[in-house]
């Protein structure tokens, strides 16, 4: 399967005007790929993740297309999109605790969900048991209420449920942010295992944590202020980042072992630009140590080396 996103624009309507949260992104995800989507708050990664499955509230599709296996996804059409959700495109919610209805037994909730999708619970039952066993949960979990489960168990139930219909695309939005390191590792490894076993074809992992992406993603896509800035295989991105933003970002992350007395790390001065009225040209130029005259012209997101893309006039060097 392939996901092809072409010049996608999604804005938020507010009283003060349109916030250009996602301002023209183009990329593709191939079969079996785990793509990491990284960036800091306000960069548009969450908007992108949400747009692919459900435009909510004030979000408005302003342009661009998304195709899954050659089929155009009707993102703006709530009802038409409903046919794709869960079966073709699925999402793992961030907080498993809130995702489960507290007054429903797990099994009942699953059967209701499947019914609403026109899938027979009875037919799916054996596969459900198999997958639960795979993540270390027994059938008795279906008879329990969410409150009887631990946080880790709930997370696993939610992951099994989200992938039950073998979706082509799985979106994991900030799945590991609020978790302890041990649970974080287990959940991240589960994502890889699901891909390896063919439960999902491709995965988009959205997070601000580059280190987790290095562990499990095949490629990493970095976003800044609503635009794409760099894309590369995970190992290459962390070892040899080409875009100044990526370089500065990686430079500000302490590894276990780095001590302030030995080497003082630096952050990135300044703040991301307002998305209500973004500056022309490269959006990072106000904070970029390499900025020069040409940066007032927006650099295109182009291939600078085999398999590597960047949006920077100086990156091709």
């Amino acid at each position: 399967m392939t996901l092809a996103v072409d010049d996608l624009r999604v804005y938020y309507r507010t009283l003060k005007g349109d916030v250009k949260a996602l301002d023209g992104v183009t990329f593709s995800v191939s079969d079996g790929e785990i793509m990491g989507l990284a960036g800091e708050s306000g960069c548009g990664k969450t908007t992108l993740g949400k747009s692919l499955i459900r435009l909510d509230g004030r979000m408005q599709l302003m342009g661009g297309t998304v195709s899954l296996d050659g089929v155009r996804l009707p993102l703006a059409d709530e009802r038409a999109m409903s046919a794709f959700r869960f079966k073709d495109v699925s999402i793992v919610p961030q907080y498993a605790m809130s995702a489960l209805n507290p007054i429903r037994k797990i099994g009942r909730m699953i059967s209701e969900l499947l019914d609403s999708r026109g899938v027979s619970y009875r037919d799916t039952r054996p596969e459900l048991s198999r997958r639960l066993a795979l993540v270390g949960l027994g059938d008795e979990i279906l008879d329990r209420f969410p409150i009887e489960l631990s946080g880790g168990q709930k997370q696993r139930v939610v992951m099994v449920l989200s992938t039950l219909m073998d979706p082509s695309l799985l979106i994991a939005d900030e799945l590991t942010s609020a978790l302890d390191v041990s649970t974080q590792k287990a959940v991240a490894e589960m994502l890889v295992e699901f891909r390896d076993r063919g439960f999902v074809k491709s995965t988009i992992v959205i997070t601000h944590d580059l280190a987790v992406l290095y562990q499990i993603a095949d490629t990493i896509l970095v976003m800044y202020a609503g635009k794409l800035v760099e894309k590369a295989p995970a190992g290459e991105l962390t070892r040899d980042p080409r875009h100044p933003y990526t370089r500065l970002l990686i430079g500000s992350l302490p590894e276990v072992g780095a001590r302030i007395s030995e080497k003082r790390l630096q952050g990135i001065a300044g703040r991301p630009p307002s998305l209500l009225d973004p500056p022309s040209g490269c959006r990072f130029r106000a904070r970029c140590p390499l900025a020069f005259a040409k940066c007032v012209e927006e650099p295109p997101f182009v291939e600078i080396a085999p398999g590597r893309h960047a949006a920077c006039w100086k990156a091709a060097a």
């Binding site: 507010t14 703040r271 998305l275």
Partner: peptide, 24 residues
């Protein structure tokens, strides 16, 4: 606290600002 914050992030106002474009 992180959970309730994530709740806030779900509304567009905070999702856009986070710690970035504070003027909205």
């Amino acid at each position: 606290s992180a959970e309730s914050r994530a709740d806030l992030v779900a509304t567009p106002e905070v999702a856009l600002t986070g710690q970035g474009a504070g003027d909205v």
